[in-house]
Simulated assay, not measured.
Amino acid sequence: MCIGSLDLRETKKLQARARRNAKQFLRGSKSIASCSSQPDGDEPLSTSTFLEDDEAIDEDKEPKPDDYDYNPRSSQMQRKLTNTALVTQKFGVSLQAMAAIASSVLHDVGLVSESDTSLVIDKNKIGRERHRTMQELQKQSSDIDNDHLIGLYFDERRDKTLSRESVNNKYYQRTIVEEHYSLVKEPVSRYIGHVTPASGSSLAIAESIYNYITAEVPGGFNYILVLGCDGTAVNTGVHKGVLRCLELKTGKTVQ
Results as ranks from 00 to 15, higher is better:
69 D>W: 09
72 P>A: 09
91 F>S: 06
131 H>A: 14
97 A>E: 09
81 L>I: 03
64 K>G: 08
76 Q>E: 10
67 D>I: 12
62 E>V: 13
67 D>L: 15
133 T>H: 15
62 E>K: 13
95 L>G: 05
125 K>E: 14
99 A>D: 00
81 L>G: 02
80 K>L: 04
136 E>S: 12
66 D>H: 14
99 A>Y: 00
68 Y>A: 07
101 I>D: 00
130 R>D: 14
137 L>Q: 09
100 A>Q: 08
113 S>T: 07
75 S>C: 09
94 S>T: 06
127 G>V: 11
75 S>Q: 13
92 G>A: 02
131 H>S: 11
93 V>W: 03
118 S>A: 11
101 I>A: 05
84 T>A: 11
103 S>I: 00
84 T>N: 03
127 G>A: 10
95 L>C: 11
63 P>E: 01
119 L>Q: 08
125 K>T: 14
76 Q>C: 05
69 D>H: 09
80 K>R: 12
110 G>W: 05
128 R>T: 07
63 P>V: 03
94 S>D: 02
74 S>E: 15
105 V>H: 04
81 L>R: 00
99 A>N: 00
89 Q>H: 10
124 N>M: 15
84 T>V: 10
137 L>V: 13
112 V>A: 08
82 T>N: 09
98 M>Q: 03
130 R>M: 15
81 L>E: 00
112 V>G: 07
126 I>P: 06
79 R>W: 15
97 A>G: 05
123 K>E: 11
115 S>W: 13
121 I>Q: 04
62 E>G: 12
88 T>E: 03
117 T>A: 12
87 V>L: 14
112 V>Q: 05
109 V>D: 09
60 D>Q: 06
117 T>R: 13
103 S>H: 00
137 L>F: 12
133 T>R: 06
67 D>A: 11
132 R>F: 12
75 S>P: 01
84 T>S: 02
98 M>C: 06
78 Q>L: 07
63 P>Y: 07
104 S>C: 05
106 L>Y: 10
72 P>D: 05
88 T>G: 04
129 E>N: 11
91 F>Y: 13
76 Q>F: 01
128 R>P: 05
98 M>A: 07
90 K>V: 00
88 T>M: 03
86 L>Y: 00
90 K>I: 00
137 L>W: 04
86 L>F: 01
118 S>Q: 06
133 T>G: 10
90 K>D: 00
72 P>E: 01
108 D>E: 14
108 D>M: 11
116 D>E: 13
124 N>W: 13
134 M>Q: 14
100 A>N: 04
132 R>L: 10
90 K>W: 01
66 D>S: 15
135 Q>G: 10
92 G>L: 01
66 D>W: 08
127 G>D: 12
81 L>T: 03
